[in-house]
Write a protein that binds this DNA or RNA. Structure first.
Lengths: 231, 231
DNA sequence: CGCGAGCTTGACGTTGTTCAACTAGAGTGG
DNA sequence: CCACTCTAGTTGAACAACGTCAAGCTCGCG
């Protein structure tokens, strides 16, 4: 992992997300006063579902998974967070609890910001509030896609979607080293890890994918997209 | 359907939702100037997925379903809207399109409010903005439940959940007249209508449910809840 | 009386899970 | 350096869950 230089101040932080561009220096100062910067080792839990929601997180290094802990120890991965992405709890204004867990998939650095500060900014900065609403809407829209994926596509389509997603949204290069486990892929696509492996093998045999342990190369993106579209 | 008296003014409207309680008279006047009140017959479409988002809707009479049009003509019902509930598009601030369709299940009256007005209120009334965020968070949380229901429970659990939901959230009395079709139940639980019918019959034979056409009575709510919890 | 839409039932095939066994690699302690 | 263990990955076979298809039914309505 790249060596991390501790960020001195939110105002001068070059990692700060788009959403914070709508804040003036005073507001950034306010955030700076109420934040902790923490490092998490691979596998460690950042937020635990059900626990009190006191802070939101901003991932500045690494990769984290957001997942719901469901029935019979089965998890469902909602999404991933990479630099620089804010993880705001939907428990805000509601019950002030975390409604999903967040865990580091790679070694990760996160800034934890007091929810009170976020609420204060919402109160006084309508552009910030508006942007939060937009983010929230974007999440809704991607949830709708997820609903259709998980309920109306079968395994091949879901796995194809997953690899296109990993290439385009997470790793951004081809080939890439899969830092998530087969079980994580299963939790992402709502299938058993055995079937994840089986479908991956089929794609490998068909020349769509090259798989060597955790090194994956998308060989036929167009065809994978087609499989994803038709289910 | 009950005869409807046309609402004269938002300010004096006794149907106005909690969310509008945070508005002063001037703001209500502004909404009043930019709203249409429309009636929809059972089956008619209020919003069509993909169409431009220019207005949000507020259901003042009747019942509507919110559903995603998915693959192969299969729909997925996200939720229902009854009086008095606002249907805000997640396309707001994003692409200004509808990301799900809305259709009247019973004869329905809706107020359509220009999105520009909503945006203006967000800009100038932080309490209103805050309340929209809260509503949005509540929707997220219920989506999380839906994810677990649809991906980790099997048919019996999903149908049990559905009837508890219909009793508690939609009809509010027992017995109730099911105004939604078997196909709608299928679209709500992401299963085939044939299997909806089969599971309903099993529940009927087990004495959990009394079904006579569209007249339904929950006979053993506790057991249905148990089935819903365990999947 | 006939028509059509929604509902119901059974038989059948497919999809996907579960279970059990096996393998490979990484870390640990003697 | 070698067992030992632990975890993640892999494979196959048996089984359960679920969708599809085809047929028949019911009921309201013209």
């Amino acid at each position: 992992m790249t060596k991390h230089v501790h960020v001195q101040n939110c105002r001068t932080c070059n990692r700060r997300k788009n959403i914070f561009t709508f804040l003036n220096d005073d507001e950034l100062e306010l955030i700076d006063k109420h934040r902790y910067e923490l490092t998490f080792n691979k596998g460690e839990i950042i937020f635990k579902q059900g626990s009190p929601l006191t802070h939101v997180a901003c991932i500045t290094e690494g990769l984290a998974k957001l997942y719901i802990e469901g029935l019979n120890k089965r998890n469902l991965i909602l999404s991933f967070a990479k630099p620089v992405q804010m993880i705001g709890g939907p428990g805000m204004f509601v019950d002030y609890r975390h409604h999903f867990s967040v865990a580091a998939i790679e070694d990760t650095i996160a800034c934890l910001i007091d929810t009170k500060v976020i609420e204060e900014l919402i109160e006084h900065n309508p552009v910030f509030a508006r942007d939060l609403l937009k983010t929230s809407n974007l999440t809704s829209i991607s949830n709708f896609n997820k609903f259709i994926n998980l309920t109306q596509k079968q395994m091949h389509g879901r796995i194809a979607d997953a690899f296109i997603f990993l290439l385009d949204e997470i790793y951004g290069r081809n080939p890439f080293i899969l830092s998530i486990s087969r079980q994580d892929l299963a939790d992402l696509t709502a299938m058993s890890k055995e079937n994840v492996i089986r479908v991956m093998k089929i794609f490998k045999d068909q020349g769509l994918l090259k798989v060597d342990g955790n090194l994956v190369e998308i060989l036929n993106k167009k065809e994978l997209i087609r499989i994803g579209k038709t289910g």
